[in-house]
Amino acid sequence: MDTETLTRADTTATQPLPGDFAIWVFIFAELTVFGILFTAYAFARESHLALFNMEQRLLDRQTALANTLLLITSSYAMVRSVLAIRADQIARCIRWLLLAMGLGCGFVVLKIREFAHDATLGITLSHNLFDMFYLSLTFFHFMHVILGLTILASVTLRALGGHYNASSHTGVESAGAYWHMVDLLWVILFALVYVIH
């Protein structure tokens, strides 16, 4: 109730921000962290071109592709759950949320397998500059997937408890905005770390 008023105060014209104002501040802070990481990666690559091109070939691109598709589809499920709750279809909203979480868990499983495989190849933080960036970027993102899944889980629990309906569902929208951010970052990471060479 009060959240709605506060959110509205932030938007002068047009439409109100979906979700909570605070989550948007958080999203932008997070995006800035990743933006700095991406920029640092680009500059490091520029000065160690040969190394980056060689090391990049060792990465498992098929898994990364599968992970990208998983996250994008999970984001789609998230959109559908937000649309469902806007139409007051609570059961459908929960089903889509569960699907979004399931796909996210798929990402986690694949990523853990990839990290385990990397460990056998001797890819560590100290191995070289590329591996340092690859591991810290993807692991940092991995932690965000975990955080996103935690948020989705708590929203699902609240939805099961009947906390949301067509007129009040800021929580679902906030979780959605955060989950889209996790997906957006991965799309860029996928291109930057795995694809471009």
Partner: peptide, 22 residues
């Protein structure tokens, strides 16, 4: 400490003002 801390320390500590701004 290992060299990668130069990168990790620089990048992440550069973000430490953000929570204070928030």
């Amino acid at each position: 400490a290992p060299e990668y801390w130069i990168w990790l320390g620089s990048i992440f500590s550069a973000m430490e003002p953000v929570p204070f701004l928030m």
